[in-house]
């Protein structure tokens, strides 16, 4: 590939440095002995120790995880249904409105989504707390799931569904035995995306949660407003570490699977 010029390489390196340097610095300074985030004063893990003694923080983390697991799961079911509706039924009444409601939340400023949901819960007299938070998260993450699954369905070879029906499977059993297993990887990535978005969300959560349902981002935010401390760096480092390990595992697994597939194909053509 002679077309990969020096200019291309430099722009990628500079771009990636821009993307990663802030995160790297943040991680480094979480191990700083000093209370100042910007002056290096030696290696220490004392902020991590302090972190695990902070009960409020641990509670918030637990709330966040529960909300994320429930909302990602429900959002995956709803989002997969929505993706099926969008790709399979090209004509039904109100389809324009439907696709609008799928795409709009992807770009809608969070303050608007958050405020409007809060006002809904107030209007129907639903006390704000864990469940309102979960409902709100389901609503905005299901649209992301729908988009991920939809893009898989668009490249889906419909003839394998026809083959299943031709061989005697009813539409429902075709869906369960053929469609779902084939799109499962996309559904799973949708679930992971929904989980991450939910774990991450600050603005919508702040509007829709109530007493006793403080999430980790809300907790971090209120501390950040008071100033930058190594303790926050430590929380952030742990969160980044979890994500990094998760992504690493996922990529190793998928690379190994890909290598297996390539080897299989070679073997198949060799005979």
């Amino acid at each position: 590939m002679s077309t990969w010029s020096r200019f291309n390489i430099v722009s990628i390196i500079v771009g990636f440095a821009f993307l990663y340097l802030p995160i790297v610095l943040l991680v480094i300074f979480s191990f700083n002995e000093s209370k100042l985030v910007t002056v290096w004063a030696g290696f220490s893990t004392r902020w991590y120790v302090q972190l695990f003694q902070n009960q409020a923080l641990l509670d918030a983390a637990w709330v966040t995880i529960r909300v994320a697991l429930i909302s990602a799961t429900v959002a995956t079911v709803l989002g997969t249904f929505a993706a099926l509706a969008m790709t399979r039924y090209t004509r039904f009444r109100g389809r324009m409105l439907f696709s609008g409601m799928i795409y709009a939340p992807l770009v809608m400023p969070e303050v608007i989504t958050g405020l409007s949901m809060l006002l809904l819960f107030v209007a129907i007299g639903f006390d704000r707390g864990f469940w309102t938070l979960t409902l709100a998260h389901i609503t905005f993450t299901m649209c992301f799931v729908a988009v991920v699954v939809q893009s898989r369905l668009l490249s889906f070879d419909r003839s394998i569904e026809e083959a299943a029906m031709d061989l005697g499977a009813t539409p429902v059993s075709t869906f369960l035995q053929v469609t779902l297993p084939v799109i499962a990887p996309a559904v799973f990535s949708g679930w992971v995306l929904a989980l991450t978005l939910s774990l991450d969300d600050l603005v919508i959560s702040s509007f829709t949660s109530g007493p006793g349902a403080t999430t980790l981002p809300m907790k971090i935010y209120s501390q950040v407003r008071l100033g930058v401390t190594p303790e926050i760096n430590a929380i952030c480092t742990i969160l980044i570490g979890i994500v990094a390990v998760g992504v690493l595992i996922a990529s190793v697994v998928s690379r190994r699977r890909e290598a297996q597939r390539v080897a299989d194909e070679r073997a198949a053509f060799a005979q």
Binding site: S159, I160, E162, L167
Partner: peptide, 20 residues
């Protein structure tokens, strides 16, 4: 009569083998 109740079977151009 829906396809799953017809006594005919089809071999597809793309073969349509279930990949899983």
């Amino acid at each position: 009569i829906p396809p799953y109740k017809r006594p005919v079977n089809m071999m597809f151009q793309s073969y349509a083998l279930f990949p899983h």
